[in-house]
Amino acid sequence: MKVFRHLMAAGFAFGIVGAAHAQVSSISTPPQGSVWNTMASVIAGQARESGGMRMVVQPYGGNAQMMQSVNEGLAEFSLNDVNDVITAVEGSGEYDAALPNLRVVARINPFPIGLYVKESSGMTSVADLKGKSVPSGWDAFPIARSHITAILAAGGLIWDDVTKVPVPELIRGSDDMASGRVDSAFFAVGGPKVAEVDASVGGVRFLTVDPSEENLAKIQKVRPAFYFSDVTPAPPRVGVKEPMAFVTWDNILVAGTHVSDEQVKTLLTVLFDEADAIGKAYPPLRALDLQTAYKAYPGLEYHPGAVAFFEERGVAQTPAD
């Protein structure tokens, strides 16, 4: 497979195959500046400090490469949208072949996403984007297609209501908004890139959506694990100007079947025994909660090491929404 050959080349470049691979645990992420990369960096740092793990963060170009790297044993862990993991295991959506070696380790946190604009634009809601430009294409980050489809739906719009401007991936999309090439950009709340753009353009704001039951049905037609969550303003949440609802999914930690039970249990021990330190280092991770971390998801299996960890901690599995 062509993607696999590229991943093998990346694996050799990062020195994570052979003997080195046995000594180092890696977390595959999108590029630097993304929320997942930042989260993984904090988790890896804590795992090195308090868990004695040799853990590194390994950036890739997008979700498909991240999932492929774990499935093929080139990375041990990854952070991803539960919806994308479901489609990866199924071999549906953006995945043309099933990736059967992915296992859930834990639910990490809810992940609100949105479209944001320059504050000077005067736009305040997704509905205001009618006739305006929205990033599209996403050849290197195809997961964004379904996310933006859901956000537009929650604002009462479809793709035909906006002007599509092709962008390759997440960071470039925000850069193009900052430069004026496109009117809006897509990102997660709390993303470092949003703060960077905010400082460079004199302020940004996320656009509001309508969290009605009708719109909930619309976004769940796009991906069944989407839901709405309420987000309040806070210093790390750049662009959130007032309490507002966001299209949201669950972030989950994923491991490959090649990862030992011991590695999984060690990382989970760090996550939940050092949750306060991790949350202080990156506020979105304050949502780490042992009691809600063992959640069932359709079509996904938990890693045996995770099952053993939660059983030892007396945590029962909660059903899927």
Rank of each mutant, 00 (worst) to 15 (best):
D176V: 04
L129P: 13
A188R: 01
P211F: 12
G15D: 08
T208S: 03
V56K: 04
E94C: 00
S136W: 15
T292H: 09
S174E: 11
I158G: 14
R5C: 00
D276F: 00
T124L: 02
V270T: 06
Y294E: 05
R313G: 00
A13K: 13
W249C: 01
A19D: 09
Y60E: 02
I148T: 11
D96M: 08
P236D: 13
F228K: 04
P168G: 00
G256W: 06
G73Q: 08
A320W: 14
S69C: 03
A234M: 06
P100W: 13
S136Y: 15
G190K: 11
M66C: 12
Q23G: 11
P100V: 10
G305D: 03
Y302P: 00
V117Q: 08
A293M: 06
V134T: 07
V194M: 05
F310L: 08
P110R: 14
P30Y: 13
V162T: 02
V89M: 08
S78L: 13
R172K: 06
E49K: 11
I252T: 06
P233W: 15
H21C: 11
D139F: 11
K295R: 14
V17G: 12
D176A: 10
T163L: 10
A13Y: 14
N71R: 07
D321E: 08
D160N: 11
E94T: 03
D183N: 13
F186M: 07
F77Q: 05
T208W: 01
I219K: 04
E169G: 07
V231A: 00
G180A: 09
E262W: 00
A20Q: 13
K221H: 12
K295S: 02
F186S: 02
A296S: 14
P112A: 07
A306R: 08
V201G: 06
P59V: 09
E274V: 00
L102F: 12
L99Q: 11
P110S: 10
P31C: 06
G114H: 12
Y302N: 02
S26D: 08
T149F: 03
E311N: 12
F186N: 02
M66A: 04
P233Y: 15
A144I: 05
Q263G: 02
A10D: 10
I278M: 04
T232Q: 12
A127L: 04
T163F: 09
I219L: 02
G155L: 00
A47C: 14
G73K: 07
V134A: 05
A245W: 15
G202Y: 11
D128V: 06
G11W: 10
S78M: 13
P135L: 00
K280E: 09
I143W: 09
P235Q: 13
N80P: 02
F141H: 06
D176M: 14
